[in-house]
Design a binder for these strands. Structure first.
Length: 589
RNA sequence: GCCCACAUAGCUCAGCAGGUAGAGCACGUUCUUGGUAAGAACGAGGUCAUCGGUUCAAGUCCGAUUGUGGGCUCCA
């Protein structure tokens, strides 16, 4: 990069804030010019862009956007100065006579707060600022999409029409941003799911309900087997519990009182009411309760890949990321107060190990503390919250605090992972529960011979297997690491006469548990390579006369790279070693 | 659930002043046995999401339903 002169303006966060704020104003100006009488909502900057909400008679069409862009360009060409001024409250109200939403904002401002307006040309708007000096300083922008958005995010209030846009310091920057958007679309897990034949969601089956195809199921099985193995080796016990349970269970747990809108309608079995499970906790608790527990038994860690069903409104469903039936890598830890600290550390360590294995190295942690309405004692909450914080601190990872953001039943840690193109995904949640142990009257006998209430920690590390699978696909853009690839090796014989040899080779690889496929079709090698590569198979072995004669394999990787031919035994042991490593690096591309 | 858009062959998409459908890939058959990202020919495939309306006539216009996408809200 060439050094810039010290006078030139680097695109800082502050610069982008002013730029995008200014463009939002220019857009509002253009909208008002084209549709007089439009009521303005809010127009903040967001990551990579901005939006503005409008109440208009007719929702915007894509053509409208093009026209609005043109008007905006005219305003930019006029190079109108942005002028700010402080305005007394009473004057602000009168200036906003025709802007009910803006007026509402002013009325909600603290009395002491200074009210500022920003004006360019004839457009005058309530705004905190800051802005650029003039409209002419906008180098590049583009309107992207429209959407309905409730005023102040409240379903009870009017729905406004929102226009999203983006703005950058140069048209090159804009172009590369638009290219990034395209790249994100290319690695959309729904698209990859179809291309790689991994899963589908079908009309006939129902929205938000996933059908796992053989290849997707194969990957899922590998993930799940790995998870089970890790749980056993870390002192968890696996359990299986039913998909339905009697109404009484969900009454005791409180789900019918507090969670009902997310549960499906009941079914009647022999006069008894049953519900599909939205969570696994009550079942795990029932397992805990099957015998009298001693303090010596604790901690008890019950884990299950438990499939739960939750009613989600149709509008929120999204591929594998948001579904109606999903499988949690769920576990409930029952322990004594003196064990909490260590248990949380173990959970976090487990989490970080897992994500590293799957190729994720960046995390955002958030501790949510006691809300206004809560159950349990303040002492328990404090101890639990403290144990969460100190556990994280042992890992020397920065974390945020969501004061009062905990659920009514306990504090929690939420962990988001960042993928190869920098997006965050909510996966892990570690939650204390001071509610269910009371409701189910859980107990253990302490060393003092008295009955005590155990602590209960609810945790899901990957979160939902479905969602995690989607994240994994997008992270790797479909090119899953060798150990996860549904097909690890494709053998491509050049001609029919090579088939016999190739079958023997495949047999050897198969014995070493390498997932191998022979492409026996009557097609040319080029086509087979093309398709294997499109299917993102890690290794292609090209076998012809040369290879048979020298007893070697010719290896092509899915990125097009070519390895030196090597004896087939050598290839086999290399692959076996690579699988055992469970390595994988996602590409930034 | 709400706002907007979309819904044509397994997939990606074309079609239109309203006159009963088209391409590429995939699939089948045949020819071809070919050295690192598409060999060729032929063939089969669609009551144009569903239901209803307007019309002599609807994939094309209108309405409803279902589903999908972008958002809002919510969340694993």
């Amino acid at each position: 990069m060439t050094p810039k002169s010290s006078t030139s303006e680097f695109p800082t966060a502050d610069y982008y804030d002013r730029l995008r704020h200014s463009v939002a104003h220019i857009m509002a100006d253009a909208v008002l010019q084209r549709y007089p009488g439009t009521k303005l909502g809010v127009g903040p900057t967001i990551e990579n862009g901005f939006y503005y909400d409008f109440q208009v008679d007719n929702p915007f069409t894509p053509d409208d956007l093009i026209e609005i862009e043109k008007s905006m360009q005219k305003i930019i060409d006029l190079d109108l100065a942005f002028e700010s001024r402080a305005v007394p409250r009473s004057e602000a109200i009168s200036l906003l006579q025709d802007q009910p939403f803006k007026k509402e904002i002013v009325n909600d401002l603290d009395q002491e707060e200074e009210i500022t307006f920003y004006r360019h040309g004839k457009f005058d708007d309530l705004c905190e600022g800051p802005h650029l000096q003039s409209t002419g300083q906008v180098p590049s922008f583009k309107l992207l999409s429209t959407a309905g958005a409730y005023w102040r995010g409240d379903e009870q209030r009017p729905m406004l029409q929102r226009i999203y846009g983006t703005a950058w310091e140069s048209s090159d920057q804009l172009d590369s941003y638009l290219q990034n958007l395209e790249e994100a679309q290319k690695r959309d897990h729904r698209k990859l799911g179809r291309q790689l034949d991994l899963f589908s969601v079908q009309d006939e089956t129902g929205p938000g309900l996933i059908l796992w195809h053989p290849k997707g199921a194969r990957i899922r099985t590998i993930i799940e087997d790995y998870m089970r193995q890790e749980h056993y080796s870390r002192g968890y016990e696996l359990v299986y519990t039913p998909h339905v349970g009697k109404a009484k269970l969900w009454e005791t747990s409180g789900h019918l009182d507090y969670y009902r809108e997310l549960m499906y309608a009941s079914m009647n079995i022999e006069g008894q009411e049953y519900f599909l499970k939205p969570m696994n906790c009550p079942f795990h608790i029932m397992v805990y309760e099957t015998s009298k527990r001693s303090y010596r038994d604790l901690p008890i860690r019950l884990a299950e890949l438990g499939t739960v069903y939750r009613y989600e409104r149709t509008g929120v469903l999204h591929g594998l990321m948001r579904v109606r039936g999903f499988t949690q890598d769920d576990a409930h830890i029952f322990c004594r107060p003196d064990q909490i600290h260590e248990e949380i550390i173990k959970v976090l360590s487990f989490t970080f190990d897992l994500f590293k294995t799957f190729g994720f190295n960046e995390f955002d942690l958030m501790v949510s503390t006691r809300p206004k309405k809560f159950v349990g004692s303040v002492e328990n909450w404090d101890l639990a919250t403290e144990s969460l914080k100190t556990a994280i601190e042992e890992f020397q990872i920065p974390y945020g605090i969501d004061e009062g953001g905990g659920a009514f039943y306990g504090p929690k840690i939420d962990i988001q992972i960042r993928d190869a193109i920098g997006r965050s995904w909510q996966c892990t949640t570690v939650q204390f529960d001071f509610n269910l142990p009371d409701r189910f009257d859980l107990s253990y006998v302490g060393s003092d011979g008295q009955t005590h209430r155990p602590y209960m920690v609810h945790r899901a590390l990957l979160g939902s297997v479905e969602r995690f699978f989607g994240v994994l696909l997008e992270h790797y853009a479909g090119s899953l690491p060798l150990w996860l690839a549904p097909t690890q090796v494709v053998i491509i014989p050049i001609a029919d006469r090579h088939l016999e040899y190739v079958e023997k080779l495949a047999n050897d690889l198969g014995k070493a548990l390498i997932r191998t496929h022979i492409d026996q079709r009557n097609e040319r090698m080029n086509l087979k390579i093309r398709e294997a590569q499109a299917q993102k198979v890690p290794y292609m072995l090209i076998i012809g006369d040369k290879e048979i004669e020298s007893n070697t394999v010719s290896i092509r990787q899915r990125d097009g790279a070519q390895l030196d031919p090597m004896p087939s035994e050598e290839f086999l042991s290399r692959v076996v070693a690579e699988i055992a490593l469970r390595g994988g690096n996602a590409t930034e591309s």
